[in-house]
Amino acid sequence: MTRPPLAVVAGTGFYDLEALADPVEQTLDTAWGQARVVRGTWHGLPVAFLTRHGAGHSVPPHRVGYRANIRALADLGCRDVLAVNVTGSIDEALSPGDLVCVDDFLDLTRQRPLTFFDGSGPEGVVHTDVSDPYDPALRAEILAAAAAAGHPMVDGGVYACFEGPRFETAAEIRLARLAGGTVAGMTGVPEVTLAREAGLRYAAVSLVVNPATGVGDTPITMADIEEVLARSRAAVLEVLGTLVRTRAADDEAGDVTAPDHAAPAEEALP
């Protein structure tokens, strides 16, 4: 059995995937706009890489084409999505450079298109279950890969998604903390819920690059964020690479199983 392409979606600081062999850039047209995807192989497995902010970080978080991106990955036959989010820490126990495999989210955005199902299609009104927004089996793969690669990763956390592109106020971070938020970012929602609507398994690695406003005692600067990215980016890629290499080894051993709960995207989406 041949695996479908593995989707890797990343943002700030992750504008290409150097490990991809024979990369080919492809622009896909969808009902929700265009999406740019780079396809190739990683340890021999097919991978589709998508950078949210475009080349040179030209697209701000509130204008990312989330629906086009997820639809394009579904159209390519992807079933699993590994996401990378660069975040600020709400939990004071987290430090720049820490990795978190989140398991829940808070949606604090205000004006983004949030769903494929706006009531105008033949499927009518659809209410999607998000009791497990981040797929448990895919999360387990990420955590196992992190352990194998020797990079500590926190098992579980709540991603608080803000509208951006500005950073959050101290009051907003206090509100998110009261609601259980662990890390703060600007791109995790609606990406995670759209993947769920599309029948894709989705899991996310959060790379902490700064204390959120009010958690630290200095202003947040892009220079500080880029310094953390420069020293921590490799760890994230090593975790993902270990996961891919493990899958490749499983394939060689003939131990390939397809997700059994994810609906085919053509059935899940209008």
Rank of each mutant, 00 (worst) to 15 (best):
D132Q: 15
D107P: 00
L138A: 06
P113I: 11
D118L: 02
V130N: 05
V126L: 04
S131I: 11
T109N: 09
L138R: 02
G121D: 08
T115P: 14
P122A: 12
D129T: 09
R112I: 08
D135A: 14
R139Y: 00
P113N: 12
Y134P: 11
D107E: 02
A137C: 08
L114M: 15
P122I: 05
G119C: 06
V126Q: 12
E123C: 03
D135K: 03
T128V: 15
L108P: 01
G121E: 08
P113T: 13
D129R: 12
V125W: 05
G124T: 01
L138N: 06
R139W: 00
D118A: 06
T128R: 15
P113V: 15
Y134K: 07
A137E: 14
Y134V: 06
D135F: 04
G121H: 07
P136M: 11
V125F: 05
G119Y: 03
L114D: 10
D135S: 12
S120W: 08
A140K: 04
V125D: 04
T109H: 10
P136T: 07
D129N: 15
D118Q: 08
V130A: 09
D132R: 13
D107T: 00
G124K: 00
V125P: 01
Y134R: 07
V130P: 00
G121T: 10
F117T: 07
S120L: 11
P136F: 03
D129C: 15
V125H: 02
G119M: 05
V125Q: 04
Q111F: 14
V125C: 02
R110Q: 13
D118N: 10
E123K: 12
T115S: 15
P136V: 07
L114F: 09
Q111K: 15
T109Y: 10
P136S: 13
T109V: 07
P133S: 09
G119T: 07
T109Q: 11
Q111D: 15
V130G: 00
P133K: 04
P122M: 06
E123L: 12
R139M: 00
G124N: 01
R139A: 00
V130W: 05
P122C: 01
T128L: 13
F116D: 10
R139K: 06
P122S: 13
V125A: 07
D129M: 08
L106I: 07
D118W: 03
T115W: 12
D118S: 03
Y134M: 10
L108R: 07
H127W: 04
Y134Q: 09
P136I: 07
P133Q: 06
A137Q: 12
A140T: 03
R112W: 05
P133T: 09
F116L: 09
L138W: 00
S120N: 05
F117G: 04
L106T: 01
V126C: 07
E123H: 05
P133W: 04
V125L: 10
S131L: 14
D135G: 10
P136R: 13
D132K: 09
D132P: 02
L138K: 05
L138I: 02
V130D: 06
F116V: 08
P136Y: 02
P122F: 03
T109P: 10
